[in-house]
Write a protein that binds this DNA or RNA. Structure first.
Lengths: 337, 337
DNA sequence: GAGACCTCTGGGAGCGCTCCCACTGGAAGC
DNA sequence: GCTTCCAGTGGGAGCGCTCCCAGAGGTCTC
């Protein structure tokens, strides 16, 4: 039972004094370090309990040069990108893994210039032990910052350009290929792709998977119909497809949000899914399951992505040199295709 | 142009030496404090640039007793609660407001016992300057922790029980009342409520609003059909209603997720919305807009909720004593009712 | 021209912890 | 009985910053 104690926090010195030992011994006892006799260890524990002592995180961080904090940075032009439930899942995964390593999660939405400057400061001011970077676009300034910092950086998804040293990514090309192959195997021959922003790694990879599969099947891929991973952009892309390629009988959408948007446009246009047009999404977020009709989609292990990123970061912080990771995807067949 | 500098971080002492001033002067110059001559101030600025100096966050925190960190704690039995897009919006709001105050956002998903213990440690170890608490259930251990800590705590939504000292909440009773009144005004007389968990403040408040409105209209409220704020639970609740109260012609769902779940069940049961049964939700998240039919719902300013919580916390941290806040809601009429 | 009152300045004492190191004394080895 | 070793101990020097304070030198008053 920790006694209720005055508001003033007690310090290690007070613990040491109450326990009748030196600060060094108290510190060692606290950290389960060796070279402390059983008696003194117990005395310290008693004192800790009596005083309700909790070590000051900041002081410890200063002395150990470890903050105990891992930052998750979500880049993007405007903060609404964060509304994508994808990130919530990543966070759940990362949070769990960090908890095991006793690290705290700092969340940075680097939307504005101000936000990016704060991230840069974080990188340089030792405000965290390491950083996980997500949703980077081509030429994102954060990429350069990541290269220049001495802080461990793990990428969530490879950005456009040379692959970073450490990353965790899903097999986007493979997943998109499988989705397209599935559409083709169901007899669809005029398959279009509603792809995500092509200045992102995911956007390009998923379009490439689609393209590869089409070519391999001897079909001609359509040019990318670009969206920005949101539902409305998917709806708009589908509308554009209906105008420009009315003969389309299958659609591969680069994520579920856009897939659901496509479904909405098709419904409004009086097209039936999957009879007239089959639709496949990507991600397998909750929205795919509750869509009407339920969306066939490529599942990627989103929580695992977060978890693996965190693991990789922990390894880096501990001085190891982990290898990049590509997580498998798998097709989930539902009613939409 | 900051020169590229060795990996070793430079310190304030080095800046001072290079600038030919004392550490005190350098510190003052850095913090825009008075009592620094123009010449020395510029010398310091030059040295800072040459060395690429960035003050060490931790050391500063130790000296000032300010961490520059605000924590957002999301409580709940399992982390999946965080999948609710509601939190993403809160975070966007809070993040923006904290950015203005130059605070960093720490995110704690306090799902497990371990997670709660970590929050407790955070509260006691001065790991943050203040805390925002959300999604608390009746008798949540975090409520007691919040009372006992010396750290500023702002509640997002009032938990069941006595109202905390500082909170930001939406007008849940008023919003639910308005939603129900609207259903009644459209001629619905057998209105049911799919309510959220009744061990949460929101859950109770929204059911109360429904109940008040029904009684005020001279109608008999149905007993609460409880869900847990998720889509499946809404679908299940709707299914139960169809069995137990097949005569129902209107449904107030305590949030959009459950409202969308209800829509799904109704669709599967062959009931048309709104002709057979009208449905109203609560929150006005993206899911309501893209539902089929689009969901009439009670809009609450979710981002503003986050923003206001952050503002309140900043005020507390700065020694002010802000007053609790209740944000207005407003009915958004769409096709489902 | 003495006192009051500025602005600048740098020394130094923290903030609360970790960790190196020198020291003690008892057990082990020969 | 001597050295050798090592578990146990506490002193003290950081970690990198802020901020109090005493002091220097200048301006302004009357």
């Amino acid at each position: 039972m920790a006694e209720d104690v005055a508001r003033r926090r007690s310090t290690l010195d007070e613990v040491a004094e109450l326990a009748g030992v030196s600060r060094s011994v108290a510190s060692r006892a606290l950290n389960n370090a060796p070279h402390v006799s059983r008696a003194k260890r117990e005395a310290v524990e008693r004192a800790v309990r009596r005083l309700g002592y909790v070590p000051n995180t900041t002081a410890r961080a200063l002395a150990t040069r470890r903050t105990g904090v891992a930052a998750l940075v979500v880049s993007g032009e405007d903060p609404s990108i964060f509304a994508d439930p994808f990130f919530a899942q990543v966070i759940v995964g990362a949070s769990g893994a960090l908890e095991e390593a006793d690290l705290h999660l700092m969340l940075c939405l680097a939307a504005s210039d101000r936000g990016r400057r704060r991230v840069e400061d974080l990188l340089r001011s030792r405000g965290a032990d390491g950083v996980m970077l997500m949703a980077l676009r081509e030429n994102d300034p954060l990429i350069r910052m990541a290269e220049e910092t001495a802080m461990p950086v793990v990428f969530g998804g490879r950005p456009v350009g040379p692959a970073p040293r450490w990353y965790v990514d899903a097999d986007n090309v493979g997943g998109a290929r499988e989705a397209t192959e599935y559409l083709v195997s169901r007899g669809r021959t005029r398959v279009a792709a509603i792809c995500g922003r092509l200045d992102t790694g995911v956007g390009r990879a998923r379009y490439r998977g689609y393209r590869d599969a089409m070519l391999a099947a001897g079909l001609s891929p359509l040019p990318p119909q670009e969206g920005d991973f949101t539902e409305p952009s998917g709806a708009a892309a589908m509308a554009a497809l209906l105008v420009n390629h009315p003969e389309v009988d299958g659609v591969f959408a680069a994520n579920d949000n856009m897939g659901v948007g496509a479904l909405r446009t098709l419904r409004e246009a009086g097209r039936t899914v999957p009879d007239d047009i089959a639709v496949v999404g990507f991600d397998d977020l909750a929205v795919a399951r509750v869509a009407d009709p339920p969306l066939t989609t490529v599942q990627q292990p989103v929580q695992a992505l977060g978890r693996k990123m965190a693991h990789m970061l922990v390894a880096l912080v501990n001085g190891q040199d982990p290898t990049p990771l590509i997580l498998p995807t798998r097709l989930i067949v539902r009613a939409s295709a």
